[in-house]
Design a protein around this nucleic acid. Sequence first.
DNA 1: ATGGGCGTTGCATGGAATGCAACACGGTGA
DNA 2: TCACCGTGTTGCATTCCATGCAACGCCCAT
Lengths: 257, 257
Amino acid sequence: MSQTVDRALSILPLLAQGPADLGQVADRLGVHKSTALRLLRTLHEHGLVYRQQDQRYRLGARLFALAQEAVENLDVREIAHPHLAALNDRTGHTVHLAVHEDGEVLYIDKVESRYPVRMYSRIGKPVAITVAAVAKLLLADLPEPERRALAAKLDYPRYTPRSTPDAAAFLQELATVREQGWATDLGGHEESINCVAAPIRGADGRVVAAMSVSAPNVVVTAEELLALLPLVRRTAEAISHDYSGTTPPKETEESPA
Amino acid sequence: MSQTVDRALSILPLLAQGPADLGQVADRLGVHKSTALRLLRTLHEHGLVYRQQDQRYRLGARLFALAQEAVENLDVREIAHPHLAALNDRTGHTVHLAVHEDGEVLYIDKVESRYPVRMYSRIGKPVAITVAAVAKLLLADLPEPERRALAAKLDYPRYTPRSTPDAAAFLQELATVREQGWATDLGGHEESINCVAAPIRGADGRVVAAMSVSAPNVVVTAEELLALLPLVRRTAEAISHDYSGTTPPKETEESPA
DNA sequence: ATGGGCGTTGCATGGAATGCAACACGGTGA
DNA sequence: TCACCGTGTTGCATTCCATGCAACGCCCAT
């Protein structure tokens, strides 16, 4: 909506792909060098881009700080963390916490597996939305029109033969997940990795986050992992309880002086 | 330099302090509501802010993704990580990696202590620049005028009685650190926590990063921690070697097709 | 029913972002 | 040594676009 800001912000994903010099930025933005220079300077003043010795620009430090502060403001995360850690303690497997935001699902917390063979993932990284167990739970809870709209505009990459092939299959899967209250991903993203997941609900019953336990099947078989389902669900319920308890539903009035 | 972008970016740190509604954002920016709305919309389109159910804005998901990609572009980090992990393995203590950027020093990697009592820190969080051992190393390597200028404009908070009191003391300390090639922080930030740190150098000898080992003195005394200094220095040298080897000094030409 | 608070929209105006052209600078080859 | 690129940088006139205003719609509370 604001051309100048729009251009400036477009620089960030561009630099995320790697450092670039002034000319490259200007070209890829389709603006004059002087314009790009001024935009970059403004970004620089705010610490979002950094100029390295060779004069090329790359993403800046403030970005980390902002992301950190952002994640610390998510109260679900704080409340959930001890539960996730405890679950990791009991099972030894990788535990994830994810939320949905504007058509993306992303991990906001993670407790690493104790086993040497670990799955790759990164906090902040958007997940494979069409196959991840946590994504299914979060999207299954959307109001139907939104769910349909989102399903329609997604891509359905065939990571493996068991990946969700298309929108129809996805919506079908979401219906099932919605019904049963839990979800799995059995080799849908990476052939050898399985996950089981359960939803975390707010006081109004809406799904606010989802958690999962993941393990490669060189460590445990899918059946063994599924056996953990009751435990995972109980953990999710415990978190839901904590969360609903501490966060008064919808009361955003000023706190009593 | 660009008013519009400047205003838009000012919203981010503002939201980092917690969610805010349109009116609050407009007030704190000193602009009309409609202006704030358009800025927020632009930020929203780029995923930097998110609008929660109660219509208030908070920092958005793309910020994480950007921060992640930014950190993955830092090759020092990638090269250093296995060394840090190995050092953590041998000592059991928390190991940090930090870089300097525009007058700030921040952690870009961390391997957690094995001991139950851990120090608090966060990747991405700017460090206490006047007392942290890694900060001393990074700043000690700056050209003298820059070092003086920076020292002059810093604040010198008295975290503890042993915190660096003022610019003069700081510059003195930097000189010492520069001379000896390593640094410590003995209770200068938190009374009970000590660190020893060593520099990581690029092929041209400049300090590109610094690493440290930290432990509370309920776990090991300062003397015991200092005994690890040779090991820390050897590790830093090993990283420097790896880093100089894989990153050809200053050669930013196109890679051979 | 009625008022107040909030977010939202269309529009006229002026300020601010833009592209241009000229400059500065460092490196390269003659 | 000089001239010549290819950078990044600056001042300036034009113009477009961001701005503030005022009016509207909406929801909640009284």
